[in-house]
Design a protein around this nucleic acid. Structure first.
Lengths: 216, 216
DNA sequence: TTATGCAATAATCTCGAAATTTTTTCAAAT
DNA sequence: ATTTGAAAAAATTTCGAGATTATTGCATAA
């Protein structure tokens, strides 16, 4: 007995973490049974997901999981760099000690899990924890920017970014570089150097601008 | 006999041009008669509009026209400066002669209508033409940026920006400065000076960052 | 006078079926 | 063998009624 909000959250989580095939059809009639509701309710949820870019909708042809596209990933990366850079710079200006403390805490957690992953051969059971921690760190970066609109927009871009990347990026070959990147971003942000912070956020994401990070 | 897409376009146009009262209730039951369809269809349209920020939705309390908020306008302005600046700089790099020609054409039309408005005492009958021309100019600025995602995001921010501003800004006291601004943006863009272009876009919108451009 | 609770009213939300549209199947013709 | 077209099947969209939830009006108590 799920409410519409619950169904939305559940389907969003599945779409973002790629538990559907890319390009797969999302049939309201199929999903209704699982959630114990009517097709109309599922349809409404899928509509909402399509407007935030996590599902594709075509008139008279229903819903699909967005296909993977290196062009799309490049665009999303570009926007992440732009929005995350701007939001972090604003947080530096407005955030104060409270924000610095929260950022340090978020980085500590992320750093801890990334070191565990780095030490493991098969870190697949840590994927969901890592995902949550990485999400929290990047959200915390912009959390004190003072603009709900920017945060909402960044959240949508971040979700689509993950949807594009998550399958391909599961082997964590990048984890060693990432540990450095996240530490550099933290240091730059705490030092209050706005240009350096923007640069470190750019460097962290730059490999996805090449169009070569999607291949399996 | 309107299709759902038509209803969406019509309601969007009304919301963006403020033909509803700010804060007014949007009752599906009331709107259904006008469009000759069922309440469910209107409801679905309102849902989609709420996810792009043009309507507010609260569980079990229906839909409302977003209220005016100087904070919201500041946030939207900030994002317009960011996205329009970035999109225009990318267009400068990627656009080529074709983009320059389209931009010059869009500016010519906008300049023409703005001069007519400047010469008139009561330009209210030119509002909708001006709105379309201004929209086209700013869309053309970013049209060659190469990122559909950026363009879509900018379009949503621009629509919300208009929704917040349009009522208050009808008297066109700003039009004289605007003529200069648009010309400066065009010149900077055609000269290929990226920093200057960003600066001119910022200057054009800066008055909305003060929080004092909403009062009637 | 103000506050509280209950009933009446009005609104929203969910649902399954009917209507519409697309896709598939299969036979006939080139 | 390939193409064309009609019929059948499957999927999507629209709809209005019933169920649920919020709001209003009014009487009673503090």
């Amino acid at each position: 007995m799920s409410s519409e909000v619950d169904i939305y959250q559940e389907l969003k989580a599945r779409l973002v973490s790629n538990r559907f095939e890319h390009g797969a059809k999302l049939r309201a009639e199929d999903l209704r049974k699982e959630f114990g509701c009517s097709a109309s309710t599922v349809r409404e949820v899928l509509f909402r997901l399509s407007t935030v870019g996590l599902a594709d909708f075509q008139e008279q042809r229903g819903f699909r999981v967005p296909i993977r596209s290196s062009q799309k990933l490049i665009e999303l990366t570009h926007l992440r760099i732009l929005l995350e850079g701007e939001g972090t710079v604003l947080s530096i200006r407005n955030g104060g000690v409270d924000w610095e403390a929260r950022l340090t805490a978020a980085h500590h957690k992320l750093s801890h899990i990334e070191k565990r992953i780095h030490a493991k051969d098969d870190p697949s059971d840590l994927v969901s924890i890592w995902f949550a921690s990485e999400n929290e760190f990047h959200q915390t970066l912009i959390s004190a920017c003072g603009s709900e609109t920017l945060k909402q927009m960044h959240g949508r871009i971040y979700a689509q970014f993950r949807q594009q990347l998550m399958v391909a990026d599961r082997r964590f070959e990048f984890i060693s570089a990432n540990i450095q990147h996240h530490a550099s971003i933290l240091d730059a942000a705490l030092s209050g150097d706005e240009d350096l912070t923007r640069q470190k956020i750019h460097d962290h994401l730059a490999r996805h601008l090449t169009g070569k990070t999607m291949g399996d």
